[in-house]
């Protein structure tokens, strides 16, 4: 059977900027996931809780939701004794995310996170094993009908390359590659933990044929730093860009860690990120449906302005 190759996401992006969702992990913990527990297993064991989180984002105005499969590669799941359920966990993650949209039109991004270690020669893990794990996860996500695969929180060029190749081979309709940059000691430069600059990352992404360049999470990356990084991506490539910063830096309150950047503050800087060239925006650690709701308001104003200017 001929596979339909239309790419509604790319088409939609040419029309207007899109809003992604906020954090999943912190929301799962609010719903009772134990620290260090396997949140991805909830796709099978407590699907209603996962659905409720996705729904809260869709109701807040997300156009795109990211599946609860960040730690869903076999290598990560094996650490929790869940390796056997790899394919089922990933497929269920896509189904739940799709259900969250109900009758609304929306995009489901199948999430692939880092495998959680270091590749040879820096660490013990062979590239073959990681490639195999990414291939399995990417195939499971694509078979459940994602609109895109998002490879998130990457810090190493080699691992990023393996994940992109896996997503390509699985026939992902769209590939988003997202790096986690940290602000360096001088407070200006950003690099990943492994020393990769935004330009280096962008060059590899372009060379490997991804559809969107992205950044998420990262120590010290607030909205303005995200805007800077978007500009650096833009200096390398004209491809659409996605940005998902954290809701500020984690702070301690009564021995509970809180991300305190309020929705208003984060949303106020959203325009700078969009102006820098981001075409999909969302939030990473600590961001909530309340943040996304404020983002929606700001983005709607920007969309109207864009439409008016056209």
């Amino acid at each position: 059977m001929l596979k339909v190759t239309a790419r509604p996401l790319v088409e939609a992006l040419s029309q207007r900027p899109l809003l992604s969702d906020g954090a999943m992990g912190t929301q799962l913990q609010l719903a009772g996931l134990e620290p260090g527990g396997c949140g991805e297993a909830w796709n099978l064991d407590r699907p209603d809780e996962v659905l409720a989180i996705h729904r809260a984002y869709v109701e807040a105005g997300s156009d795109c939701v990211i599946t609860n499969t960040f730690g869903g590669s076999r290598i990560m799941l094996e650490r929790h004794g869940e390796g056997e359920r790899t394919v089922a966990i990933n497929q269920a993650g896509v189904r739940i995310a799709r259900r969250a949209f109900g009758d609304r039109r929306g995009f489901v991004f199948g999430d692939i996170g880092p495998f959680g270690g270091l590749l040879e020669p820096y660490g013990e893990m062979s590239a073959d094993r990681v490639a195999e794990a990414f291939a399995e996860q990417a195939e499971a996500l694509v078979s459940a009908d994602v609109d895109a695969i998002i490879i998130e929180t990457q810090t190493a060029i080699e691992e990023l390359g393996l994940a992109i190749r896996a997503a390509k081979a699985a026939g992902a309709p769209c590939i988003i590659a997202s790096m986690a940059f940290d602000v360096m000691r001088d407070g200006v430069e950003v690099r990943t933990m492994m020393g990769v600059s935004p330009e280096q990352a962008a060059e590899l992404m372009v060379e490997r044929g991804v559809d969107l360049l992205a950044l998420n999470c990262g120590t010290g990356i607030d909205m303005l730093k995200a805007a800077d990084t978007v500009r650096r991506y833009r200096s390398v490539s004209e491809l659409p860009i996605m940005a998902q910063p954290n809701a500020g830096q984690p702070e301690l309150e009564n021995l509970q860690v809180v991300y305190k950047q309020p929705p208003e503050e984060m949303a106020a800087a959203l325009e700078a990120v969009v102006a820098a060239g981001a075409r999909i925006v969302g939030g990473c650690c600590g961001s909530t449906p309340a943040h996304i709701r404020r983002f929606r308001e700001v983005l709607d104003v920007l969309c109207e302005r864009e439409a008016g200017a056209r």
């Binding site: 020669p121 000691r185 001088d186 690099r191 933990m193 492994m194 020393g195």
Partner: peptide, 13 residues
């Protein structure tokens, strides 16, 4: 490493 002149890979090697 502290001053970001090198990164994790170089330190590991």
């Amino acid at each position: 490493f502290k001053y970001n002149r090198i990164f994790v890979p170089e330190v590991l090697l």
